[in-house]
Design a protein around this nucleic acid. Sequence first.
DNA 1: AGCACGCCGACT
DNA 2: GTCGGCGTGCTC
Length: 685
Amino acid sequence: MIARVALPIPRAAPFDYEVPLGLSVAVGDRVRVPFGPRHLWGIVVGVVAEPTFPGRLLPIEATSGPFLPPSTVSIIEEVSRRSFVPVGLALARLVPLPSRVRVRAVELAVPAEAASDLARRAPAQARILAAVAEGTTEVGALRRIPGGDRAVAALLRKGILRPRRLPFSYREESRAVALTSAQRAAVEAMRVGIGSGRKYLLFGPPGAGKTEVYLRAVVEGLARGKAGLLLVPEVSLLPQLWTRAGRVLGSPPAPYFGELRPGERWESWHGAQEGRIHCVVGTRSAVFVPFPDLGVIALDEEGEPAYKQEEMAPYYHARAVAELRAGREGAAVVLGAAAPSVETYSRAERGEIELLRLPQRVVGAEPAVRIVPRGDEVIGPALEEAVGRHLARRGQILLFINRLGFYTGAACRCRAILRCPDCEIPLVFHLSERAFRCHACGRVQRDPACPNCGETRFHLFGVGTERVEHEAKRLFPRATVARLDADAARDRDRILSSFATGEIQILVGAQMVGKGLDFPGISLVGIVNADQLLSTPDFRAGERTYQLIAGAAGRAGRGERPGEVIVQSDQPDYYAIRCAVRGDYAAFYGEEMRYREALRYPPFSRLVRMVVTGSGAEGKAGQVARDLGSHGFEVLGPARLFPRRGIPRAQLLVRGKDDVVELLAAALPQPPSWLRVDPDPIWLG
DNA sequence: AGCACGCCGACT
DNA sequence: GTCGGCGTGCTC
């Protein structure tokens, strides 16, 4: 017998190994094999009679037995094939390794009276129990109490304390929800899909109660013994979803996302695989979590670009993986959106996906939306007036700005723009570091000089989250202002909780605050710079603009108070802005489709992005373009890209029909290491 | 990914 | 004359 073993090595097909007599090996097993001078663990992706490798085979050294279900191996194989990434590398990046959970917090496992009896003769343990009773649950803090180190261990061993594993500290008051008839009809329709692999687009404005529908669909699946998987585009949306899922499902779901501790990630993955965990909430990587019997996969805000992994191999779109899995595992896929991607909406129009509409808001009322000129100020007079008015009425305010930092650009008086010497992109000034930062490579420069003339003083311009926060504090010194962006991600949980309790009155945020957050206290949303959303030279700029404005606007007026939205823009007639402020997706979709058709962009074609990295990138890209052209491919480019960390880059686009990826795979069986192939790119820059 | 082999600059 | 820079190439 020969085992085909995927090893965690870039750019290599699986390796053939001899299965020694007496050892039994199957697809999905984890095995240890000799590899050159070293030993590696790999995953068996095939067991065959005849090897493909012509040379001598070495034997497998050891096996740790079944590790992945064959269905997961096959999904990841498919993902790796579609993204031109070696299977072994894809497996290594997508599958967590066994890891122990470190106890970070504890809770009382027995009634308090019983505990105090047990600890009467152990003063250190009694001190720990007293501290726990007073709310100190962090193991780190408890160990600092004299004798705490051993006492905590003893109490855990005796079962008086138990590990407390709550992934988020976010809390909110639970609200009982009754479904509207449209919501009930949607859940009813999805019932058919569970077990049959059908796809649904749940389309409704913000506040139409989409989350409740996913959760009820999951409950339907659970009732039939089938697991549920709920995906959101951003980690910041997980605390709220996790809390609500716990309420509807009766017990909290397991979280799964990239920045989770290895032990906790393994616990969720492995628990799901073993059938102990029946519901997982997570971000895009959670789409791979193995369940023996999956009933429902829901993707909230399906049009969000965060569902596409593009910065690192393997390149995949969680929506595509969800659909692939659903087809094979008979799960229902529910794509939810207020502003679907035009690709998905056009598939629903063609009947490939069943369209389920939620016509109106169930929480709050339609907000009043106004476009005001942007002018030179960060927070213009109209927005300033509105913020003051809402503060006076004890409403909460969300200010949305899609750039990080304080000033987003610096110009020298010789007209040169200050750029990263390695990446060539404009440097952003961050007040928190009192320095300039390159958002591509992260490099920080304290006092850079103009490369042109040596000047060290610059004219600073552009608006980022820090500057909006600063302006809000300056204009409203008595309000509590907080900022939630990637730079403040460490405090995300705390900030969200304080916002939920109303302690924070003005929240300034990028990206992550603009989507599914549901805080009934928000009465005003200000979109500080709608025009900047359009500035990306990308065919999806219109769609992004629509999504961001509609999404941010949808945060307003979800409670008792009427909502108000103010969009600062100097291009109020641009179709994406005009349609978004009216919440008119149909009109936006119509215009967008006309534009996409005229320029033959998706969904009227399929694109594959190819990025060449390294010295001579442009020359190599030209060569690839000519080669592909002579094979009959339609090639756009090559175009020079900004270098990354000083390494030159160039890209080209291949345009074709649905089969373009398969045709490319045939033409390029093994792309060289300097060529990255990314089908269906989300960003073209 | 590692780790080899393999050809051109600054040093004992 | 060596030590060592990291450019291609291989690992079943």
